[in-house]
């Protein structure tokens, strides 16, 4: 078992979920309650990673983050190291890729919150952001928790984008799902099986959790 890759996967998924949280909370607010022009565009952009082939996404991320792009250039002149093929680059890519997995359950939960409760809050001297934090989010906690779990789990499992943006550098960008790919490539079927079982068990546990959170029939009685 490539424990280094597993540790990296966990570190990457935790970090990307943490970075995702504030960005996702703001976007979820705009998508659930905002009334502005171009809302459909924002909705489409944040859902894009759901249906786009990871290679397409990865390719454009390389272009956008590469040393010749403004972002990549600025990053390199600030930190002295390139953004692509690094942990930070992977983190950025992961945040974007996992956004829809965070947003979808949360936005749908927020949509189910009784509007009158939000109106009452506003008549009790509560600003819009205050009402969001004190009323809407606590009442949409299932969606919020589902979003955190799903985006974390998806970050663990992501393969295509990580390979494209991160390459395959042991200890730096080789995650568990990429280690599995390596193991198969080198005919280490026993090792591949162990890694695959670990990822399978994790994904299954996550889905049981979110199904239970949705209040649907849990898988046990």
């Amino acid at each position: 078992m490539d424990w280094e890759a597993v540790r990296l996967s966990l570190r990457l998924a935790s970090a990307s979920t943490l970075v995702l949280l504030p960005i996702g909370l703001i976007l979820a607010y705009l998508l659930a309650f905002g009334r502005f022009r171009g809302k459909a565009v924002v909705e489409a952009l944040t859902s894009l990673p759901l249906i786009l082939p990871p290679t397409v996404l990865g390719f454009y991320l390389i272009v956008a983050l590469g040393p010749r792009s403004p972002i990549g250039h600025a990053w390199e002149s600030l930190t002295g190291s390139p953004l692509v093929f690094s942990f930070s680059g992977l983190l950025l890519a992961q945040v974007f890729t996992n956004l829809p997995f965070f947003l979808q359950p949360l936005v749908s939960s927020l949509g189910g919150v009784d509007r009158r409760l939000l109106e009452v809050a506003s008549t009790l001297n509560s600003s819009r952001s205050g009402t969001y934090l004190r009323v809407a989010l606590p009442l949409a906690w299932r969606g919020l928790l589902s979003g955190v779990i799903l985006s974390f789990a998806h970050a663990i499992g992501e393969f295509g984008v990580v390979l494209m943006v991160g390459g395959n550098l042991p200890g730096r960008t080789r995650t568990a799902s990429i280690a599995l790919f390596d193991q198969v490539q080198s005919f280490d079927m026993a090792g591949a099986n162990r890694t695959a079982m670990l990822l399978l068990g994790f994904a299954f546990a996550v889905l049981v959790c979110t199904a239970w959170l949705r209040g649907k029939d849990p898988l046990w009685r």
């Binding site: 008549t123 509560s126 009323v135 606590p138 009442l139």
Partner: peptide, 20 residues
């Protein structure tokens, strides 16, 4: 002026208490 700056109390027909 948005509602939270008017200092006006409002009671709905069906109480609308915060369930949490």
């Amino acid at each position: 002026v948005p509602p939270h700056r008017r200092h006006v109390g409002y009671v709905f027909q069906e109480s609308a208490l915060f369930p949490h």
